[in-house]
Every structure is written in C-alpha cells, then in structure tokens.
Design a protein around this nucleic acid. Structure first.
Lengths: 240, 240
DNA sequence: ATTTGTATTATGTATGACATAATGATAATA
DNA sequence: TATTATCATTATGTCATACATAATACAAAT
C-alpha cells in the first residue's frame, strides 16, 4: 500500500470545546478585565446558536478554573483565577503518579535552595525574633537535634517561606506539605540514620545564625548541608 | 436587642458542590486508581437521588481538572490529573493580577538558583555538548554578550531545565515563558544598561564552564551574578 | 422612615428526548 | 474462510422546556 500522508480528523473538538475557546476569545477581543460583567447564558446561547446546556458546560469549565464567578440573579463576572486553588483538588485526589510526586518533592528542595536572596532582602527584625522563638522551643524540648521532628520542621521552614514575602510561593508550600510527608514516608529510603558528610550537622539554629550574620551565599551552603539527607536520597534513588 | 449567637447558614453549598464532594469521597472510599472504570451518569444520578444534570455538572468539574476522562459509549475512567494543564488556560486568560505575575517572576529566579545540585547530579555528555552548541551559536552571531537576546536566553535556560530531568519543572517553565517576557517588558525598570557589580558579567559560556568544571556551589555563585540585573530589579522595585 | 410584601431576573435544577460515536454481533460478500 | 457491510446497542453529548431559588428593586403598609 502506498504511503499516505496522515489524515487527521477534521475536528476532534466537541461543541463545548469550541464554545469554550470562542468564549475566551470573546473576553480577550473585548479586553474584559477582572470584575467586568459578562452577558448572560441565554444571550450567549442565542448569539452562538447553541443550546443553553452547551453554554453552561463551557462556562462551568471556566468557573472551575476560577476565571468567572456567578451569582443568582446578578449574573456572571470575570474574576481573578486562583492558580493554587486548582492544585488543591488534584492533590487531594490521591491520583498523582509517583513520578509527579517525586518531581514535586524535588521542587521543594529547589525552592529552599533558591530562596536565599529573597530572604536576605526581606527579612525583618520581627521575622528573626519569631524564628528565634521557634528554634528555642525546639531546643527546650531537648530533642536530639539530628532527629527529624515534623512539627518544628514545618514551623521553621514554613516561616522561611513567609519571609520570602511571595504569597504564591507561600500558598504553594502550604499545599505541598502533605506531599512532602507522603514522599518522605513512603517513597524514599529511610534516612533516619543518615551520616552527614564530615559528621557536621547543620541545625535550624545554625541556619538562623547564617540568616542573621551570614550572606545569601553562606546561607545556601548551610541550607544545602541541612538538606543533605533529602538531596542524597533524591539524587541516588531517582536514576531517572 | 439581646445579643444572639451568630446564626450561620445551614449550608451555602449548592447541590452540585455536595455531589462533587460526594463523588470524590466515593473514589477514595473504594480506593479507585488511575484507569479504573467508574459508574455511568445515570447510575450516579439514581444512587444519589439527583438529576443527571447535576451529576454531569459535578463530573464536568472533575473532568476539567483532569481527574476523569470520558468517551462515548465507553463510559468514564479515572485519569491522572495534569497539574500543569490548568495553569495554561489561566495564564492565557490574561487575568492574573500584577502581584501574582511578580510572584511568578520571582519564582523563576528561585528555581534557577536552586536547580544547581540537580544539574550536577544529572548532566550527561550529550547535555554538555548541546549546551556548547547553543553557546557557540550565540557567540558566532557576534552579539555583545551583555545584550539580552530572548532567543538564546530561552534556548540556554530551557536546556538547563531539561537537564534537571524533572518533567513537572520543565513543563512549568515552558508555560511560564510568556510571563517572564511580559514582566520583563512591562513591569520592571529597564535594565538594558545595567552595570554589573565589579563590571564582571557572567555569560552563558561562563555558566557552561562552571557546569563542566565547577561545583554546585560555584555554579550558584555564577548564576547569581548572571541573574544580577533581574534580582536587582525584583529586590528593589518590590518593596512588598 | 423602616419594614414588609411582591414581581422580576439570571442562575440552578429537573426531566425527557434525540444525536453521536464506539462496540459487538450478525449477515452478506469475495 | 476471511473479510466487509449492516445493524442494534450503549453511554455520553446536545437540545428543549419547565420550574426552583436567591438576589434585587420597587411598591405598599405600618
């Protein structure tokens, strides 16, 4: 048989798909901004020559990603999509594959390593005080500082994200906490008896001191050592 | 008037809201995994005692975030939600506020600074070769290396993300390119005549050399200098 | 003037019907 | 026999219509 050029279907888009595209085009064409009122369902239906059902389904998709909000009798308005919100349901669904979860775990390490410059540029006296409080509590409880304690881990690192003053980043981190925990518990080799290179362990207090007296560079070095067991596990068990 | 205990509405959830929640609970309870078949619309409708319309709207929401897929006659199956996919429409909508866009721009800087360890752990000969090619092309074109050229910028840094071998990160980066461009063009003070501290400019070639001969630490220092104008602008113009 | 009722409006929900694509069984054809 | 055409079946996709509900404005009543 002769070799044929691949014949693609004329259009594998459903009616709702097309309407959805058309609607977003419409918003752009008319340069509509957040808070702007948009026509009602029946007007869209008539204008596009489709049933209200199809319009509703297309609009519902946009509502699902937070692009529009609707209230009874008031109609619909464009709204600021919440990037993080969509993440939430997806994560809660427990349907993410292991590869994706690993990717996200790595992402956290990347973020903590890359945050340093923002931290130094934006730290305040109050921030330092609060971090000190957290670290003190940790010490008071007389825990062997090499032991992983989730509570203080979350408190300390969470505060760092807060200092970054990047609310998108912060919310992202909040959301990812369960993922970290899951990956930590289930998918990586046990690191409870990890030997730090050179035997030197960098505690939260050490990190705090770096944040007070050090530089972004020195802080990164310290953070890298603090995260050493996590990096070790990621970089060895994920040969791809 | 006597002080009364605040009366909360009995339930501000719509019927579709409730059904959606109930459905996700159902998936968890039955420990359904990706690829598993789920009951058909009419069965759900009958089981929950609501109309097919409501079931469809609830299911459509889940379909929108990629949790389920449906085919005519075949029915519906659970599928792996695509974290990035939803981002796409949101970004294209041009509805994100300036603050969010700034947050995302910062996020890129954080990622590039934090990636170093992954790069060194996963770089291959082929990767280095390709990076070399990119840098050579750049030099050939005799551009003043301090001038910002979007094309090579994308090629070089995009390749770095690729080397990280973290596909979630990669797709994220692909998606964010337009944001970087927008923020770069519209929201930050012009840096075309930025003076690098100490007059030393770190080019892509310098970064490549660090990746070949240096360490994650030295690479981070180099990257920090390479990104200096961006950091400068972010850390000065965003006083919160 | 404040409250209360009432009509109106746009979204939310319900119902029934038909369209469409995928599937498998059956019959027709080479 | 093997392949193709035909057809019924099934679950989602689309349509049409009606009614429910919450928010709003305006009139009526106290």
């Amino acid at each position: 048989m002769a070799k044929l050029t691949k014949l693609e279907p004329l259009s594998n888009l459903s009616l709702v798909d097309k309407v959805e595209i058309r609607l977003t085009e419409y918003f752009k064409e008319n340069n509509l901004k957040i808070g702007d009122q948009i026509p009602k369902e029946l007007e869209f239906a008539e204008a596009l020559g489709v049933s209200r059902t199809v319009i509703r389904e297309a609009l519902l998709r946009l509502r699902t990603i937070g692009m529009i909000e609707s209230k009874k009798r008031k109609g619909m308005v464009l709204s600021q999509p919440d990037i993080i919100q969509n993440f939430e349901k997806v994560l809660e669904s427990n349907l993410l594959g292991d590869k994706t979860l690993k990717d996200i775990f790595e992402l956290r390490l990347i973020l903590e390593m890359g945050m340093a410059d923002l931290l130094f540029a934006r730290k305040t006296e109050k921030d330092i005080e609060e971090l000190s409080r957290i670290v003190s509590h940790e010490d008071d409880n007389g825990l062997d500082s090499t032991i992983f304690s989730l509570e203080y881990e979350v408190a300390f690192h969470g505060k760092l994200y807060q200092i970054s003053n990047n609310s998108t980043l912060q919310r992202f981190q909040d959301l990812l906490l369960p993922v970290f925990q899951y990956v930590h518990d289930h998918m990586l080799p046990d690191a409870s008896k990890f030997r730090y290179s050179g035997g030197k362990f960098i505690s939260h207090r050490d990190l705090l001191n770096e944040l007070i007296e050090g530089t972004p560079e020195s802080f990164r070095v310290a953070m890298r050592q603090h995260l050493e067991p996590h990096f070790e596990r990621v970089l060895t068990s994920f040969k791809s």
